[in-house]
């Protein structure tokens, strides 16, 4: 069963970690034991929860805005050849700028609050979502197009009733990628300048040599990412099943 496999893998990981601590005899401010980290997590659970909440909001709002922007752009590009010719090179070029390098600038422009982290997240996921969805919209079975022309279809109605539903699995692929990138965007934003969030808490703990708290934050961040990944994966599967007209297995 998958659940037991996952649990077993986790236990093995923890055991290896403990062995590493014992073998290297590292001091707890360099490599804390799992037990110490658990204690720190328990002792600081309120502060971790508060900061995790902030990061989670940043990631989700960023995902939402980035997805809406990406979907809108992809539809525009697929509707107009001119837009496609002009915009695609620009989009690709902007990808050549490392978004991380923009983080200080974003903090300057949007402040130390959630705004700059949300913008960072949006910037990171915008391209994968746009690119995957645009690909799906334009890679359409030519038979559908022929049939629609013979039926006297309107261009927008063709987009609405055929292109978009057919491209939903591609959107799902883009969203899966976005779910991996989004937390990275938020945390980098927090590292550069923030007063809240898991990224901020990790830096703070590091500065005060509370490495156990840093590890606890890191693990919570990883858990958040995994939950997000699973949720988006379920959504992507749903989109797949919808587009293929197959019932839930």
């Amino acid at each position: 069963m998958r659940f037991w496999d996952t649990l077993l893998a986790l236990l093995i990981g923890l055991a290896l970690w403990q062995v590493l601590v014992i073998v290297t005899d590292a001091p707890h401010f360099i490599l804390p034991s799992p037990w110490r980290v658990a204690q720190a997590a328990y002792k600081s659970h309120l502060i971790i929860a508060e900061n995790a909440w902030v990061t989670a909001i940043e990631v989700m709002v960023g995902l939402l805005i980035g997805t809406v922007l990406g979907v809108t752009t992809a539809i525009q590009l697929a509707m107009s050849k001119t837009a496609e010719r002009l915009m695609l090179p620009i989009l690709v070029f902007t990808q050549a700028v490392p978004v991380f390098a923009l983080a200080p600038l974003l903090t300057l422009w949007f402040g130390y609050g959630m705004g700059s982290k949300i913008v960072m997240t949006v910037l990171i996921i915008y391209f994968p979502v746009t690119s995957a969805f645009h690909d799906g919209l334009t890679r359409i079975d030519s038979g559908y197009r022929d049939l629609s022309i013979s039926m006297g279809a309107d261009k927008w109605k063709f987009m609405q009733h055929i292109q978009i539903p057919q491209a939903l699995p591609s959107l799902g692929t883009g969203l899966r990628l976005a779910a991996v990138y989004a937390p990275i965007g938020a945390v980098i934003g927090e590292w550069v300048g923030a007063s809240k969030g898991l990224g901020y808490l990790m830096l703070l703990a590091n500065g005060r040599a509370k490495i156990d708290l840093m590890f606890a934050s890191l693990i919570v961040l990883a858990c958040l990412t995994v939950i997000l990944h699973i949720a988006v994966g379920m959504l992507a599967n749903k989109l797949n099943r919808y587009a293929q007209g197959t019932p839930k297995p």
């Binding site: 038979g143 629609s148 039926m151 006297g152 279809a153 009733h161 587009a243």
Partner: peptide
């Protein structure tokens, strides 16, 4: 009207919705 070798039914629509897809597209 035109019918090809491939049925070109839209998999996400019910059979009924597929029958009147032309009206929707117009």
């Amino acid at each position: 009207s035109y019918m090809a070798q491939s049925d070109l039914l839209l998999p996400w629509l019910s059979v009924l919705d597929n029958v009147f897809i032309g009206a929707r597209l117009r």
